[in-house]
Nucleic acid binder design. Structure first.
Lengths: 135, 135
DNA sequence: GCTGGCGTTGACGTGTGCGGCAAGGTTTAC
DNA sequence: GTAAACCTTGCCGCACACGTCAACGCCAGC
């Protein structure tokens, strides 16, 4: 299989594949004409990378999974190094979520204060004249 | 006040201030010798920028707040444009938090599945011989 | 044999918020 | 008078995962 076909079957681009090879993440054999040659195993590796990327893993974080598969294990996460990455990622996610929730609270507080200030200003500048102003 | 003093009083760097000026976010008057000259008002603007940055606002998102203050309003969020930025940010935060929580769920699921698979494999390869193996 | 569609490498661009350095001018303290 | 500490502009670098050329080679169909 050549690079274009692999890219299409994995739902990515040739540019990404060349980049992965540059990182040593997904090295390719070469055909006689210099074209990159891939097989079904590479497709499996690539799908693993893509799935982890969708989870927000950086490319370096996918490396243990890829190497685990290349070592012949049935799943990318059959190795301790991969499990460790999972653990780190979960901790990271928890921290990030907590931080965002804290920020959300603070921003919501600022927003509500600002809205109240605006409403009070409007009320003092243009007090309702009488009941008749209500249409 | 010169750039170094302002930076120190706001807890930032001269480099950041020059960058803000480059963006037109915090323009500076100039002294006769070409040095940037700031006043207390600029310190106020800068503090506003820094606070919003701490909330994760991008510099462009702080612009309405800064312009609001420069227009003479008592607070950076006294203007409708600032309130709109708050609203957008809250929506963005909610979306981001929801996404992260979803990802966390999925990663946790993968992790637990992988751990179970590992334990089952270990159990089948090295079954507990008998009660005596427990120390 | 020629066009079109593959492939190759290499290099620069993207966005964000600065850090760091060079090469100079200014001011301040002693 | 001179050294230290400030200021100026300008430009390159970083992280990250590629996108987007450019200039070229290879191969299939007509």
């Amino acid at each position: 299989m050549r690079i274009g076909e692999l890219a299409e079957r994995a739902g990515t681009t040739t540019r990404a594949l060349r980049y992965y090879e540059q990182l040593g993440l997904l090295p390719a054999r070469r055909a006689g004409n210099g074209y990159r040659a891939y097989d079904e195993g590479d497709l499996r590796l690539l799908r693993e990378i893509r799935m982890l990327q969708d989870f927000g893993f950086g490319l370096e974080e996918t490396r243990p999974f890829v190497e685990c598969l290349r070592a012949g294990h049935p799943e990318g996460d059959s190795c301790p190094a991969s499990l460790e990455v999972y653990r780190r990622k979960l901790a990271e996610l928890d921290e990030c979520i907590a931080k965002l929730q804290d920020v959300r609270q603070q921003v919501a507080g600022q927003f509500e204060r600002a809205v109240r200030a605006r409403d009070e200003l409007a009320a003092s500048e243009q007090p309702p004249v009488c009941e008749l102003t209500k249409e």
